[in-house]
Structure formats: C-alpha cells, structure tokens
Amino acid sequence: MMENLVFGVDIGGTTIKMALITEKAVIVDKWEIPTNTTNKGTNIIPDIAASIKGSMVQRELSNEHVLGIGVGAPGPVNMQTGILYTAVNLGWDQPVALRDELQQLTGLSVVIDNDANVAALGEMWKGAGDGARDVVFVTLGTGVGGGVIVNGDIVHGSKGAAGEIGHITVVQETGYLCNCGKTGCLETVASATGVVRLATDALASNNTESALRNILLDAGHITAKDIFDLARTDDPIAYETVQKLSTYLGLSLANLGSALNPDKIVLGGGVSKAGETLLNPLREKFKQYAFSTVAESTAIEIATLGNDAGVYGAAWLVKYKH
C-alpha cells in the first residue's frame, strides 16, 4: 500500500520552496518557483496551486494519495481562520484568506502557520531538535525571528505574535531604530545587517588597526561573513563585534531560557553559519546570564536542515494539525 504524502510549502520573498514529503518525513521531491509579487501578490496562491497540481499529474497522484498541504507564510497568521494578516514583502498589505483560497484551487486540505514557526517545527521534527519537545528556534538572517515549541507544539500567543524574539529589547538607551518602530530590538544588533552596523560603528569610533577597515575602503561595504572570518584571526574590531553580538544574543536567549527552560535552543539563518566562532562566546554569555539550572540543562545548537526546515515543518502541520 502506498504511503500517504504531504506537500510542504515555504513562501519566501524571492522564491517559494515546495516539497513532496512522506508521512515519515522523507522528501520524495523538492523544487522552487519564483515569488510573483506583482499586482499585490495576487498570483502567488494560484502559482502554488498550479505547481502542486502539476506535480500530482507528473507523479500520477490523486487527491486520495495526499493528506494535504502545509504552508509557512512570512507574517502573522490565524491558524483557526486560515488568514494571513499581512506580508508586506509579498505585496499583501491586507489580510489574505490563504488557507481557503488554496483549498478551493487544489481540492486538498490546507494548514498554514508563520514561516519561523514552521521552520522551528521542522527542526524539532527532523533537524537539530532531534525529537526534543521543548525547543526555542531563532533565525538570524536579514532579520531575527523565531518559534517557541512547548511540549511538542508551537506556541502562538493570543494574537499569533509569540516567538517574536527579534523584538526583545536588548539596548535600553541609544539603541538603533528597528523596522517595527521601537529602538534597541535584538534584530538591530543580531541580524546580518545588525552585525555589520555594530562593526561599522566600531570602525568609526576608534582608530584601531583592523582588516575590516581595508575591506570597507576597497569594496565600499563589509559583510557579516567578513566579520566572522576575521574574528577567527583575532582581528580586534571583528573580535570585539562578535563579543558584543554574543552579549546581546546571550542575554536575550538566557532570559528566554529562564522563562521556558527548553531542552534546546536552535540557531538558524545566515548568521548561524559562523558556527563555533559564534557558538563559543554565545554559550559563555548564556551561562553567565541564565538561571543556573537552565544554564546546565539547555543546549545551544546550530540548525541542520538549512532551507529544508520550512517544508519539513509545513509537512508536520498537515500530519499533526489538520
């Protein structure tokens, strides 16, 4: 007898990642389609439906073979109504009936959630969470997002805003302005752009010798990768920047850890690719700031699924939430 299949969909601003996955979390096929944000994103849902139907035709699948479609979307979501409130980078500035429209176009059951929550579920199910049932997932990319899993299920909060880790205030005074309108958010100092901002300000405020200064003069800009690469060589400005980042992030994670005592805190996103260069100082700061029991029992790990976390988590939604 054929194993039931699930479609996992992870909607991003540039591409939509899609996968056909078995109930036992084995990817049968995966592909991407471009995210068409023209005309306020009106083509996005029809494009997803067409791609799924095309995959089913190609594999000679009927609706009976497919449990449903799970979707991770970049914005606040109401799982009960299936509405995505807003996703400005997709052109969706008004609430979108994402679940109902996709169900109507495909004839399949659809479950939706926020993309960071879905990535967190993917890492819990198949990645660095390694089956742990209490996990905090933090994405350190162009922004900082996250998902909180308690007793094997995602925490949404009363308005779906649980896990907005990037908007924990870590700089009370003289903090940078965040896109959310507040100042001093974790996102302003721990995202890829935040790390660059810390280093650029350090270069401007002192005359310490640093290879970062030469990169800035030659290329006109520096990247987070430049900073971590040079921190490994003990470049003073790069090292100081990573220490500062680790302090801000370590304090935030310690406070979350003291509130939730997860088995694991899993770091994903581009900044996490720094690996041990980030993990070593971060673990030290976490131990310094966290409640002693938490410091001993909560492990900080790097995510293992990369770009597949979202499609795995979307498949988990169908398996356990539809």
Score class of each variant (00 low, 15 high):
I215W: 05
D235Q: 09
V271F: 05
V311S: 02
W316I: 09
E209L: 15
L245F: 00
A202N: 11
D263N: 14
N261F: 00
S272I: 01
S297M: 12
A231F: 03
N207P: 04
R213E: 10
T304P: 00
N255I: 08
D235R: 01
E284Y: 07
A238M: 10
L217C: 06
R283E: 11
N255G: 11
T293M: 13
A202E: 14
D218H: 14
K287H: 14
D218Y: 07
I302E: 01
L245K: 01
L212S: 09
A231M: 06
P281S: 06
D263F: 07
N207V: 11
T241A: 08
L282W: 02
I302W: 05
K264V: 08
E276K: 07
I265G: 03
T223Q: 10
D234A: 14
D235K: 08
A231W: 04
P281R: 04
L216N: 03
G275L: 10
A309W: 08
A224C: 07
I227R: 08
N280L: 12
A224Y: 04
L282M: 00
I302S: 02
N206C: 14
K244E: 06
R197L: 14
P262D: 06
I237Y: 09
E209D: 15
T298L: 08
G270N: 10
G310P: 06
I302N: 02
A290S: 10
Q288L: 12
T223C: 04
N207K: 14
F291N: 10
Q243R: 04
N255K: 01
N261K: 07
E301C: 04
I265C: 00
A219V: 10
L251G: 06
N255L: 09
F286A: 03
A290I: 07
A290P: 05
S258W: 03
G270V: 08
A254K: 02
L267S: 04
Q243C: 02
A199K: 14
V294Y: 01
R283L: 03
A199F: 11
S297Y: 11
A204P: 12
L260C: 12
S297H: 15
L279E: 04
A259P: 05
I227Y: 09
K321F: 05
A303Q: 02
P281H: 00
V318E: 07
A295P: 07
L249C: 01
P236F: 07
D308S: 14
A204G: 13
A231N: 09
W316A: 14
N206Q: 15
T304F: 05
T241M: 11
N255W: 01
A259V: 12
A303Y: 09
V318K: 02
N214M: 14
T200F: 13
T200Q: 15
A199W: 12
S210K: 09
A295L: 06
A259F: 13
A299H: 11
G268Q: 04
K285H: 02
L279M: 11
A295E: 01
N206E: 13
V242D: 03
V271A: 05
I215L: 07
L278I: 02
N207Q: 13
L260W: 06
G257F: 01
A299P: 04
D263Q: 12
K273H: 15
L253V: 02
Y289N: 05
K273T: 10
I237G: 08
D229E: 15
Q243A: 04
R283H: 02
G220P: 09
T293K: 09
D235A: 06
T223G: 06
L251Y: 09
A254I: 05
G306T: 06
L253P: 00
S297K: 15
